[in-house]
């Protein structure tokens, strides 16, 4: 048995070692308690709904979320808006459809099956409207950044006046968590910029946390199902491993050799 532990230890050392190689970050990010971390981590439903509000009212004017559909908003493990509410959200957007029988494109209210409507028609249009910088699509943004949720959460709160000696061009802002500290996005959040329906105080910190939670769900819509299945799978494997261990001991007791 001792050898087994050694084996496990070495295996975990390998994995940790490589993980750390990549996880090494120079900047210390702001920390907060994410409800979706850990073995049983789940999304905070209210935070997801508030986060969606911040996304639509603030981020969505520049940032697309092209891999999400309106139906996702009512699906299990997400913000879990009621079906009626999700339908209403979808209907509040104008979707270009067609061509119709006359060969013309037309607009209609959005349906649950529609993908999130994009703020710009294409990347060029987005760049033209934002001084040459493309506001990245937010569907998988938290997975596409080294620090993940902590990075996004910190970035949203990382705006400050540039230290002396740093000159910024027009339309460039100073952010202490941004790679190279220069960012083309103006501070998107300010206290009270959205009006939360549930009475939560819309501080920059609160909104950062809510919208980051929402972005995490957008990038990993099946995170809750994954955690639940993972726990069951690992418990099952551990029980099976124990049973197989004793079967093995029993079988090997027939020969004069240790296993």
């Amino acid at each position: 048995m001792k050898k087994l532990f050694k084996l496990i230890l070495i295996l975990s050392f390998f994995s940790l070692n490589f993980a750390q190689t990549f996880a090494a970050e120079k900047v210390e990010y702001l920390k907060t308690d994410w409800s979706f971390k850990g073995l049983f981590g789940k999304f905070d439903r209210a935070a997801l709904q508030r986060g969606y509000q911040v996304y639509t009212e603030v981020c969505a004017s520049c940032h697309s979320m092209k891999y999400l559909s309106y139906r996702n908003l009512s699906e299990e493990g997400g913000p879990e808006f009621s079906l009626a509410a999700a339908k209403a959200i979808a209907a509040s957007f104008e979707v270009t459809d067609g061509p119709n029988a006359d060969g013309e494109m037309f607009t209609r209210p959005g349906k649950l099956s529609d993908k999130f409507v994009m703020p710009y028609d294409n990347v060029k249009a987005a760049q033209a409207a934002n001084g040459g910088a493309y506001p990245p699509d937010m569907s998988v943004l938290v997975k596409a950044r080294g620090g993940g949720v902590d990075y996004i959460y910190s970035l949203l709160q990382g705006y400050e006046d540039p230290p002396s000696g740093v000159t910024l061009d027009d339309g460039v802002y100073y952010n202490k968590y941004m790679y190279g500290n220069k960012i083309r996005m103006a501070a998107p959040l300010s206290d009270g910029i959205v009006d939360y329906g549930d009475g939560t105080n819309a501080s920059v910190e609160q909104m950062s946390k809510d919208v980051t939670t929402f972005l995490m769900w957008a990038a990993e819509p099946h995170l809750e199902a994954r955690h639940q299945m993972g726990f069951k799978a690992i418990v099952y494997l551990i029980i099976l491993t124990i049973l197989v261990y004793f079967s093995m001991k029993k079988i090997w007791s027939r020969v004069e050799s240790e296993v």
Partner: peptide
Amino acid sequence: LMFMIVFAFFVFYT
């Protein structure tokens, strides 16, 4: 089976 436990940990949690 022990290997699969390590494997499962990566798949489901990181």
